[in-house]
Design a protein around this nucleic acid. Structure first.
Ligand SMILES: [Mn+2]
Ligand SMILES: [Mn+2]
Ligand SMILES: [Zn+2]
Ligand SMILES: [Zn+2]
Lengths: 135, 135
DNA sequence: GACTTATTGCAACTAAGTTGCAATAATATC
DNA sequence: GATATTATTGCAACTTAGTTGCAATAAGTC
């Protein structure tokens, strides 16, 4: 767990419980579902209550340390927020998820040019076949 | 209900029940949640079981007559599939949803240029403030 | 009208996520 | 280190959208 992240947590009055640390240790820049996170925690020998996991994810999102994304299935996927804004591609065959960094400026102009709304945010995910599954 | 739609249904062995007709009559090109659809049905004096509504929406999506979209909240939003591919903007203030037709070619090139996946589909929704809510 | 079978309604169920609360433990203060 | 404060945890009970099995109903066909 980065010193920076730890600072941010404590600065906000968050405590460094072993639950929160374990959860943060599992999160990465690849979005993971709650089921995946819980599964990994179990593999590592942790047996936290689901309530604890949900509450931690929510508060981390609330405080901007973690991002929640919707993908194809139900529920949310969580990833560390420490990267700059980007999107994802998910393999329709194996489920692998990868970051994809678009030309955001082009995207936003494209949108602004076709709507009268003052656009504040967007949600964009791609689906396809990853290199491994192509061959 | 368009003659074309009716044809498609019967061609696929679907029956024109009053339930299915009422549901289709409510659907438009603006995505609606199941709650909204059920609410309108009630207003119109129909009291179909929720099972019937879910099953109809699912089979209509399955057969390509209806599109299901994810927006900000949980659950899916349904709209008629008879338009060409497009996206939506949802007002963060009043909830109003509008179609938005992007330059899809530019979007897909933007994506292809930044990923090694063979991209097959995408999911893109915008959120902002509608003209009415701006003033 | 009689026949076939897609569709409906109902009741029971499932499971993800939430809530209230008393017990616990991380931090601050001395 | 001991003490006080309160964020956080675990548990049990609950909520609620959506699903499933099945017998009754009603489209569509001849
Ligand atoms: Mn990412
Ligand atoms: Mn639309
Ligand atoms: Zn793959
Ligand atoms: Zn509005």
């Amino acid at each position: 767990m980065s010193a920076n992240l730890q600072q941010q947590l404590q600065h906000r009055g968050h405590r460094l419980t072993k639950q929160r640390q374990a959860i943060l240790a599992i999160l990465s820049h690849t979005p993971q579902s709650v089921a995946m996170i819980r599964h990994t925690l179990h593999e590592q020998g942790f047996h936290f209550d689901k309530t604890t996991i949900y509450r931690n994810l929510h508060s981390l999102v609330q405080h901007g340390l973690v991002l929640a994304t919707k993908l194809q299935d139900d529920g949310l996927y969580y990833e560390l927020a420490s990267h700059h804004h980007h999107h994802h591609v998910q393999c329709q065959n194996c489920g692998r998820i990868e970051d994809i960094e678009l030309d955001e400026h082009a995207l936003l102009q494209n949108a602004a040019a076709h709507s009268t709304f003052a656009i504040k945010q967007h949600q964009l995910e791609f689906f396809g076949i990853c290199p491994q599954c192509q061959s």
